[in-house]
Simulated scan of single mutants.
Amino acid sequence: MKNTIKLITAAAFFGMLMSACGTGEGTQSTTEAQPSADENVIEDQLGREVTINENPENIVVGGILPYFSTWYVATDSTEEIAGMHPNSYNAAENSMLAEISPEVLDASTDFVKNGEINIEELMKINPHVYFEKESDEKTLEKVAEAGIPSVGLQTNKVADSDPLATFNSWLELTADIKGGKVDERVDSFMEEGSNVQNMIDDTLKDVKDEDKPRVLFLHKHSDKSIVVGGANFFSEKWTEATGGIDIVGDDGVEGMKEVNMEQVYEWDPDIIYITNFTETQPDDLLEDKVPGQDWSEVKAVQEGNVHKVPLGIYRWFPPNGDAPLMLKWLAQHNHPDKFDYDIKEEIKTYYKNFYDFELSDEEVDSILHPSSEAAKY
């Protein structure tokens, strides 16, 4: 990959490390075990140069929750995942990744204490690299100061929160870390996503706006709070990429916003998608089970168009390895008259081709209808 710079000698690495420490843009290595293999200098998504062992044996994933699954997609391995955020671990426990590569469940969550990174516990894992969302610069700096290479990853700045583009950028960065050893695998995933999007675009090219469904993503939800997704957020990009109208973003809402039922009534969506960041299930709305909230007045509920977003290799809402399947699943719900493929067969074929895993009918059903447990943490 273009960002990868081979370091020829240990002396060169040491000189770079000392220079970085002097400028405050530090690239640091663990003090307990110096990497013996070649090293790379990669540029993370904060624009920082970070020196990393080309074959890191221990990686830790903090608040950038989906990245542990990206590591698997790029490398075909979870053995290196030594630690992950408890929220990530809960998703992993309820994902197909736990079946495909069960070593992922060996990861520790002890380094997260009361929602914060505990450096002492993190050091016990002896990570060769730590991954964090780029917005959490405080944690990235704290980890780097402890001598652990820290890599910042963007979530909402890649093509204005395009989940597929974001996932592709993470794949490319992972390939940089691996010194180009996984380029072919990474390229195959990226090509599939592009092919699926092109297929959807071609199929929907003549659809007029008045024939597109008005979509609302229910991101987090309880009897006390309704949080929806709006513009410059994954919900907007998924909706627009699959022939829907983001009624929340179009109304001027940016990112995530807490709203009340009166606002939902005003929007009156044709379709509601419920993410895996809430325990709420479609039946909770369809059967009017939520105390203090009357969803029966909403068009999507009246017509039975309320759907839980699937969870396969990871939650399908944020950037993830099943992104091409998310596109197909959404496109079919948004335009069932134009996409007549069997989504269950599409999922089976994808998992066989890209994960070399044969899914049973029961496993496909578990992907399409994830339990509420996956949202708990």
Score class of each variant (00 low, 15 high):
residue 169 S to M: 08
residue 1 M to R: 07
residue 265 Y to K: 14
residue 110 D to A: 15
residue 235 S to F: 03
residue 227 V to I: 14
residue 25 E to V: 13
residue 166 T to M: 06
residue 261 M to R: 06
residue 24 G to N: 12
residue 132 E to W: 04
residue 351 Y to I: 03
residue 276 N to M: 07
residue 311 L to I: 11
residue 216 L to W: 00
residue 304 G to F: 09
residue 74 A to Q: 00
residue 268 D to L: 07
residue 207 V to D: 05
residue 96 M to P: 03
residue 17 L to H: 08
residue 78 T to A: 08
residue 284 D to W: 05
residue 326 M to A: 14
residue 70 T to C: 10
residue 297 E to C: 05
residue 361 D to Y: 11
residue 80 E to G: 06
residue 88 S to G: 11
residue 39 E to A: 13
residue 352 K to S: 14
residue 170 W to P: 02
residue 377 Y to C: 08
residue 115 G to F: 11
residue 353 N to K: 14
residue 76 D to C: 00
residue 173 L to Y: 02
residue 227 V to W: 02
residue 62 G to A: 15
residue 99 E to G: 03
residue 151 V to D: 04
residue 64 I to Y: 12
residue 288 D to S: 13
residue 215 V to E: 02
residue 128 H to Y: 07
residue 324 P to D: 10
residue 322 D to Q: 06
residue 27 T to R: 11
residue 306 V to I: 09
residue 348 K to F: 06
residue 291 P to I: 09
residue 23 T to S: 14
residue 181 K to Q: 13
residue 291 P to D: 13
residue 17 L to N: 11
residue 313 I to F: 01
residue 313 I to L: 08
residue 313 I to A: 02
residue 275 T to P: 01
residue 35 P to C: 10
residue 242 T to C: 15
residue 162 D to F: 05
residue 296 S to I: 05
residue 46 L to C: 12
residue 200 I to A: 03
residue 69 S to A: 15
residue 358 E to A: 08
residue 161 S to Q: 03
residue 238 W to C: 04
residue 121 E to L: 10
residue 112 V to N: 09
residue 84 M to V: 12
residue 95 S to P: 01
residue 242 T to L: 05
residue 41 V to L: 15
residue 310 P to H: 08
residue 351 Y to L: 08
residue 31 T to L: 13
residue 138 K to E: 14
residue 23 T to N: 10
residue 190 M to G: 03
residue 22 G to R: 10
residue 139 T to I: 11
residue 4 T to H: 07
residue 11 A to Y: 11
residue 245 I to Q: 11
residue 54 E to H: 06
residue 181 K to I: 01
residue 103 E to Y: 08
residue 261 M to W: 08
residue 45 Q to F: 07
residue 47 G to R: 12
residue 111 F to S: 05
residue 217 F to I: 09
residue 349 T to M: 12
residue 107 A to I: 06
residue 351 Y to H: 08
residue 351 Y to W: 07
residue 75 T to S: 11
residue 238 W to I: 09
residue 307 H to P: 00
residue 100 I to P: 00
residue 327 L to M: 14
